[in-house]
């Protein structure tokens, strides 16, 4: 990938939880419009890595920048940068005290200072796009997991982010709901969105990824195209992982 159109740049990042070294010398560049899928066994640090990109997890050393701008240390500019990075969580994290529609309108009004009418129109459009328009006046707790996650995606998209981060978006869903969420994510990849997806869904990685990053024990072990990774992986650890999950 050329460095010129790098959207996310991670250089020499290390992170410790106490004495536990969760991220070891991570280097990763994600180009504009690229879809990077991070795979790896649980506890490999893949989720932590995803969360460092918008500094939900602070790092101990190294540098992360988004669209050429280093992650600020102060919370004001950091909020500004985060507003351009959409994030979808494993647990959906919809605001429990707001309706579905309010969830999606919330940040555009509060952060982008959009007019409520404009934010509302855009929110309804996005909710329809992810297929939950009919639920707009319900509370999150009245929705199924799959519906909640689709609302969460709409909420992130409402900010017109430059980058979308997906932190195990289907891991807490019942099997029959995984597809409805993955379909929405796949649809997004076609629109040219820069995406980092941490997942256990191998099928998704095979079809939707531009590149696969394989992590184990806090390190990036292998970076390759999906074809290469799934058919002809280079390392023993990746082979072992694949033999377990495929």
């Amino acid at each position: 990938m050329q460095a010129t159109n790098s959207m996310i740049s991670i250089k020499g990042v290390n992170k410790w939880y106490g004495s536990f070294h969760v991220l070891k010398d991570i280097d990763l560049e994600v180009a504009q419009g690229e879809v990077v899928v991070i795979l790896g066994p649980s506890g490999s640090g893949k989720s932590t890595l995803c969360r460092t990109i918008n500094r939900l997890e602070p790092i101990n050393n190294g540098a992360i920048s988004i669209d050429g701008q280093a992650l600020p240390e102060e919370s004001g500019p950091l909020s500004q940068l985060r507003s351009e990075v959409g994030m979808v969580f494993q647990q959906f994290n919809l605001f429990a005290h707001m309706t579905v529609l309010e969830n999606v309108m919330f940040a555009p009004i509060q952060v982008r200072k959009q007019k409520p009418a404009a934010a509302r129109a855009r929110a309804i459009e996005l909710l329809d796009r992810v297929g939950v328009g009919a639920q707009k006046d319900k509370l999150p707790s009245q929705l199924s997991g799959g519906q909640q996650q689709r609302v969460a995606i709409a909420r992130a998209l409402a900010m017109d982010p430059k980058v979308m981060l997906f932190d195990e978006p289907t891991s807490s869903l019942d099997p029959e709901m995984i597809k409805e969420v993955l379909d929405v994510i796949v649809e997004l990849t076609k629109g040219g969105m820069t995406m980092v997806v941490v997942t256990h869904e191998m099928g998704f990685a095979q079809t939707a990824a531009d590149r696969v990053v394989f992590m184990a024990e806090g390190e990036i072990v292998e970076v390759s195209t999906p074809e290469e990774f799934f058919n002809n992986c280079q390392t023993e650890r990746a082979a072992e992982f694949l033999s377990k999950v495929l």
Partner: peptide, 18 residues
């Protein structure tokens, strides 16, 4: 309050006071 509620708010770009 769940930790996720705070993270979602931060990730959307809301400032601490918001």
């Amino acid at each position: 309050i769940g930790r996720g509620q705070l993270e979602a708010s931060r990730a959307l770009g809301l400032k601490n006071m918001q």
